[in-house]
Amino acid sequence: MTHISVTVDGTVYEDEVEPRLLLVHYLRDRLGLTGTPVGCDTSNCGACTVELDGMSVKSCTVLAVQADGGEVTTVQGLARDGAWTPLQRAFHERHALQCGYCTPGMIMAARDLLRENPHPTSGEVRQALEGNLCRCTGYQNIVRAVLAAAEETTGETAGQDSAAGDGASGRRTASGQEVTA
């Protein structure tokens, strides 16, 4: 077992993990953060995309031990005080989801794009989402939603707001016990 300390959606967790534990399984099975789904499990589909130290990653292709000392943001950490980000709102309003399975990854990848390129063209949106598959083939509305979010905000806020998440900050073990405030 290897000791890790990782901040997820604003909360610091200390844990002993097997080195082979994938970040996505750590998030889902140990921390109960099931907002990040496992899709293809082969690094292709992007459903499990989260942010690690400021950049999108496929959490099925990162070991939990590699996130030691790092800061993870999942789709569950985006809303602040229950208020969605412009990107989340745009996905809702533009009907950018059908079954919804790819949605967390799509939002995390789109967030990444808008941070680097606040005013993308639709071609650039498609390019940026090349690693995220929607098997309902709802791409048309996903692209519309990302463009709408970009238009609605200045870009900085579309991509970045409320990285700290909606949970209270604190330090917890995997069992949920807070160890420091």
Binding site: S43, G46, T49, M55, S56, V57, K58, T61, V62, A109, D112, L113, A128, E130, G131, N132
Partner: peptide, 9 residues
């Protein structure tokens, strides 16, 4: 190479 998330790592 691959896609943006893979290129980040």
């Amino acid at each position: 190479v691959a896609d943006p998330a893979v290129r980040h790592r």
